[in-house]
């Protein structure tokens, strides 16, 4: 695996004064942050805060109005998503996107085929390519027993895990996960996040995720950033965020339940 675990913290992603507005509304307003290697970083905020817009600019689906995005020191601002992906940024979606007319293994094999630039190959058999690699990835997310099932009939939680395996197929340095646990049962959520945290630790990649479930955020993130109306209003570890007056205002109109809820699960 190319991403070696490095004890010295290196900066994987640097976002500098990123701006995007839609018809006069500043969806993302002057946002700057960095992602360190092996970091599980959460981006939270109320609905409409600009989280997904931010994500879309990081992986190239949207071009920022202003600001820069650098990956491993290289300026990738305005690159198209495919090029960003090739440079090592994986992404999972809020609404799962998998190939329903392929098996679970084939879904992962497709990502491997794309990685090895075999997509124009006309005469080899797709199902026989990169089988071992695909099964290894499926094992990593605990899906190897379902490798030959059709992806179209998977349970939702399994689809999320399949997406994770697909996203890991090109050995990314950074994984963007848009609401990874949305629509899952509470038990499944913890399981998926523990799995993700394990992969982060083992492979030394970095994960930036958005999330609405505060248990997931406070239970698993190394660091948390809070976005409100396009602006980054706080960042730091769980305690810092919990005790931040501005964050409490945004989420609860100044109530104290936030802290109490967090400490229950600490």
């Amino acid at each position: 695996m190319s991403a070696q675990v490095n004890m010295a913290t290196t900066e994987v992603l640097r976002v500098d004064t990123l701006c995007k507005s839609f018809g006069g509304v500043d969806a993302v307003d002057n946002v700057s942050f960095t992602v360190q290697q092996s970091e599980l970083l959460a981006l939270i905020g109320p609905n409409g805060a600009g989280k997904t817009t931010c994500f879309n600019m990081l992986n190239g689906q949207l071009k920022p109005d202003r600001g820069t995005v650098s990956l491993m020191g290289e300026n990738i601002t305005g690159w198209d998503p495919r090029r960003v992906w090739r440079r090592g940024v994986g992404r999972t979606f809020q609404i799962t996107a998998t190939y329903s007319s392929m098996t679970v293994a084939e879904n992962v094999q497709m990502a491997l085929i794309a990685r090895h630039r075999k997509t124009f190959s006309l005469f080899s058999r797709a199902t026989r390519l990169y089988v071992t690699e695909a099964l290894t990835l499926l094992e990593l997310v605990g899906m190897q027993s379902q490798a030959q099932r059709s992806a179209g009939i998977l349970a939702y939680g399994d689809l999320k895990r399949l997406e994770l395996a697909i996203a890991l197929a090109h050995d990314p340095v950074l994984l963007l996960m848009d609401e990874p646990t949305a629509g899952m049962a509470p038990g499944e959520r913890a399981e998926l996040m523990e799995l993700t945290a394990g992969i982060v630790a083992e492979r030394g990649l970095s994960v930036l995720f958005t999330e609405h479930d505060m248990d997931v955020v406070f239970g698993h993130a190394d660091r948390i950033m809070v976005l409100n109306r396009g602006q980054l209003i706080a960042q730091g570890d769980a305690d810092t965020i919990r005790n931040d007056k501005q964050v409490q205002d945004v989420y609860l109109g100044g109530g104290s339940m936030f802290a109490a809820e967090g400490s229950d699960h600490a």
């Binding site: 495919r82 998998t98 497709m110 794309a114 990685r115 997509t119 080899s124 197929a169």
Partner: peptide, 21 residues
């Protein structure tokens, strides 16, 4: 072949196809 599978995948989900490069 992989090429046929790419088109099949594009039919199932263009978002997924683009996002694996």
């Amino acid at each position: 072949a992989p090429f046929g599978y790419v088109l099949r995948g594009g039919r199932d989900s263009s978002v997924r196809t683009e996002s694996i490069g």
